[in-house]
């Protein structure tokens, strides 16, 4: 099967600090790929590169056959119309109502008439259990509602690829489960390829077809949820079993850090 997303030898930096090291990943069409790892492991940076919001220091990212490092801005715009992104905090425009936020991609990228757009907006809001909230401002919504409104906006163009940054972060367990079910429902209904960045284990194992585990910017493993569960890698087992890292402490270096601050 030809991959819809292909990442080859990706390196990324923030200024002088390297955050991703030789990352490789292939994602098949219709697959739910979860990118998992602890805080600061490079998950969100990897997502930013996939969305062409950051340029890689080295390596190649291909999406739907396009190398997004060398693509023209016109081609990138066309590619982005096939991709939906749900950001961690929703990233709804605070000056627009929920309804206006959701309709924004359609108004800018299609020639549909207002009535059709209205129906599509209501349809997606209904799907996200947000019917009747279209005239509220984002500031009036709860965290879970913001995420669902962001998801409604992300799927309004019926994208082929959906990227979701931390769907469960900051949500109560019930809302988190509802969101996971919504993701599975969306895949079933629209056969989207999904890239989901999360550090929520339960959610990851429930929704993923395959999981990529990142540690300190390096790929530790890519595999099915069962393969990840049965991994011999101690760091992965620590992550799954919520154990702290057993790092050996260098006494001299520790004292030097305390005294000099270096």
């Amino acid at each position: 099967m030809t991959s819809i997303i292909s990442i080859d030898n990706l390196d990324a930096h923030y200024d002088d600090r390297q955050v991703l090291f030789d990352v490789n990943l292939q994602v098949n069409p219709g697959e739910i790929m979860v990118i998992m790892g602890g805080s600061g492991s490079g998950k969100s940076t990897l997502l930013k590169h996939l969305l062409a919001l950051k340029k890689p220091t080295q390596g190649k990212i291909q999406i739907d056959g396009h190398d997004i490092g060398s693509i023209s801005s016109k081609e990138l715009k066309e590619l982005r119309k096939k991709m939906g992104v749900a950001f961690q905090g929703g990233a709804l425009l605070s000056s627009l109502t929920v309804g206006d936020n959701v309709r924004l991609p359609l108004e800018h990228n299609t020639n549909l008439d207002t009535q059709t757009i209205d129906i599509m907006v209501r349809l997606k809001l209904e799907l996200m259990n947000l019917a009747g909230f279209e005239n509220l401002m984002p500031a009036e919504l709860s965290g879970g509602m913001l995420k669902r409104a962001g998801l409604a906006r992300a799927v309004i163009m019926d994208p082929r690829i959906l990227c979701f940054d931390e769907p469960s972060a900051g949500l109560d367990p019930v809302t988190s489960v509802e969101l996971d079910e919504l993701i599975l429902k969306l895949r079933e209904a629209m056969n989207m390829t999904m890239i989901i960045v999360t550090h929520e284990l339960e959610s990851a194992f429930k929704i993923a077809d395959r999981i990529m585990v990142l540690f300190d910017g390096k790929v530790a493993m890519v595999g099915t949820p069962d393969e990840i569960r049965n991994s011999d890698d101690k760091r992965i087992q620590n992550l799954i079993n919520r154990k702290s890292r057993d790092e050996e402490v260098d006494g001299d270096a520790y004292l030097k850090r305390l005294v000099t601050g270096d």
Partner: peptide, 8 residues
């Protein structure tokens, strides 16, 4: 970032 991703 959201606007860029929506091709707006």
């Amino acid at each position: 970032d959201a606007l860029d991703c929506m091709a707006v």
